[in-house]
Structures are given as C-alpha cells and as structure tokens.
Amino acid sequence: MQGFSDLVAFFEDSSLADAIRENDVLFPSIESVHVLAICLVVGSIMAVDLRLLGIASVKRPVSAITRGILPLTWGAFVVAAASGFLMFISNATKYLGNDYFVAKLCLIAAAGLNMLVFHFISAGNQPRWDAQARLPISARLAGGISMLLWIAVVACGRWIGFTMEAG
C-alpha cells in the first residue's frame, strides 16, 4: 500500500494537479469534457443494451450494431477516463475517501467484467442468434445488467459532487 499512496501523492503534488486546483476555469472545463464523454459512453452502450434486450434496432444484427457503435464508445471512454483522472489528481486523497467515488470505480469495473463474461460466453454461438430479434437469455441478461450498472455509475458520479467538501 505504501507504493500506492506514494503514487497518489506524486500525482496530487504535481504542478498539473496544482494548476487544476488553483485555476478557476480549468476544473469546470475538464468536468464539462468528462460529462460530454460520459454521455457518449452511456448513450452508446444503452443503444447496444436495448438491442440485446430486444427493445430497439431489432431488425439489425447485433454484430452490425456493435461494429458501428463500439468504436465511438471506446473513443469516448478514453476521453472520460483521461478527464476523470485529471479531476481525480486535483484532489486525490479526498476522492479516495469518498464512498461514491470508490463505488463508481467498482461499478465501472463490474460493467467491464459483465462485458467480458458476455463476450467470452457468447462469442462461440453468436452467429446463430446474431440476427434474431429475441436473443438468448444470456444476451438479454448481459444487456439488462449493463444498463443498470451504467445508470448507477452516472448516479454515483453525480453524488460525488454533492459529498465532496469544497476546497
């Protein structure tokens, strides 16, 4: 753990973190980029989830939707993670002590795990159900879980803002 707290201190004490803390415009700008990127991540993932659930875009094969949308999701995720990291280092110790921040990271990890599990379980027989409107239960379950997890991620993100003391 010593190594981790050293690393956190290194970032928190950096001149970059200092600039984000001290500058009036920098933090809100980074936060706006973060919200923008999260909106794209969540919006695009929901489009895929709704397809998996059989609610939207049911005439299009799942693979066509993921091929078209997921590059956008990943691009936006990189931006969201980078902007999130910049906000984090401006006040790292306080963020790490915030339950909603820790919960948000865990929920994102869970969403990633859900995606991986679905990918590896279904990869073999996806060609069989790819074009079906009503998908097997494993696919619907993955879509539903993903949706709930991302809603919770957004909620935690918003709650961080209300539970971090100013300054």
Binding site: V35, I38, C39, L40, V42, V154
Partner: peptide, 15 residues
C-alpha cells in the same frame, strides 16, 4: 442523474 441520463440518450442519438 435522470437529467444526465436523458442528455446521454439525446446526445448519442443526435451524434
């Protein structure tokens, strides 16, 4: 939270 989720749906659909 609901407001941001709504913006996510709208923003992605427009984009």
């Amino acid at each position: 939270t609901i407001h941001i989720l709504g913006i996510a749906v709208l923003f992605f659909s427009a984009v």
